[in-house]
Design a protein around this nucleic acid. Sequence first.
DNA 1: ACCTGAACACCGTTCAAGT
DNA 2: ACCTGAACACCGTTCAAGT
Lengths: 237, 237
Amino acid sequence: MAKGDRSGGNASRLNRAVIIAAAIDFIDEHGLPGLTMRRLGDRLEVEAMALYHYVPSREALLDGIVEVIIDEMRDDPDVPDAPADGWQEFVVKLAHGIRRVALAHPSSFPLVASRPAEAPWLRPPLRSLFWVETFLDGLRAEGFGKEAAADAYRAFTSFLLGHLLLEVSVRGADIGPLDVVDDGEEAGPEELAEYPNVRELRSQLSVDRSQAEFEESLEHLMERMTLMRDEDGAFGP
Amino acid sequence: MAKGDRSGGNASRLNRAVIIAAAIDFIDEHGLPGLTMRRLGDRLEVEAMALYHYVPSREALLDGIVEVIIDEMRDDPDVPDAPADGWQEFVVKLAHGIRRVALAHPSSFPLVASRPAEAPWLRPPLRSLFWVETFLDGLRAEGFGKEAAADAYRAFTSFLLGHLLLEVSVRGADIGPLDVVDDGEEAGPEELAEYPNVRELRSQLSVDRSQAEFEESLEHLMERMTLMRDEDGAFGP
DNA sequence: ACCTGAACACCGTTCAAGT
DNA sequence: ACCTGAACACCGTTCAAGT
């Protein structure tokens, strides 16, 4: 970052980080299915084959993307790495941080959500040892026993996965056709004739309540976490 | 099903349903990335090009798979289409029904979870008008107002998506490399040196608690739903 | 009426060769 | 040291031709 960065043209030297960053931008612009080694090469003004000197395969590239996206959160000044004012504030800030990451990369986030897990203790979307450690350590420091911390971690990840994947998938692309044609019509009422409740609640369900939903659900999750802590407290840390 | 089914060999006539069924079996055996029009043709003892007479494209085939998998639930005798003994029992039975579907098709379920939603009122994994209508109608019949039913639907789908996708993705395949090599070693403790809490809770997090987790989380979801019903009740249906 | 062969425009990936 | 060209074994999809 300091020296050696004599970027005269846009042709800075190729390396893993540059490739992954370009891939993320590409996905955010053209969707996941559009990402091709050859097209990514074009974007970097290089033949596709040159990429293989820095990334062993397309699969490895996708794993790299997941890693980098999650690590972004470490640079977010609003995401703490330890509780400062109680575990609840800590958990809320973590949740908001991950949500910000998801919304910043709506087309890449499904990758974070659904690449195969490497281990049972790295549950999506909290897929990095750093953040899992941070979460567990924070809760234990605030009086959660071992069981309670583990249970809280499971509940937290399920909550995040469900909410964020839904939010992002309603907002836009995923794996799928390149052209997400959002036809102007509202799914002709004639085919909703047999579904009166859907018809009636349709507009209500179309309203974007995702932010409020997230906050409410998070609130209830923390009530559950309180119970977990108190129950486990009996058996002690 | 009654006549016209003179299947002498295994070469019954090609049609959309047969193709989709074969595709589901194929995915459950070889994983999603292994599904290819050409290989699916092989399995059906037909050239790949023949499939295009019944299915317009690979994308459409994937959509068909989602549809068929969800419809399986209609044949499940343990899944009611209206509340019989209160809304709570109704919701529990629906949840268990969808969980059974997910566990029956661990490799196809990610498709149900993450194909782009067609409309905001068809939230994964409850992706059929029939089931959305059934859910909304059941709750309204049990005294849920419009708002409450819509809120409950949102909370229910988020819950299902998070839990089931996690459960299925820990269990196995998804999009990704064909060979999910589960290396015998337990992720060498040396790399966990900086992550003491992860190391300590590792075995705890490896225990499969998904069934219990599902039940507990569902229980709390229903408490939330009770609140939704009572709050909305004030404004009435 | 239903399926096939041949072809097109793409893929990921390997490897010897260029500069 | 770093990238390219050419090639291989695959893809999805179209369409005229076969039976």
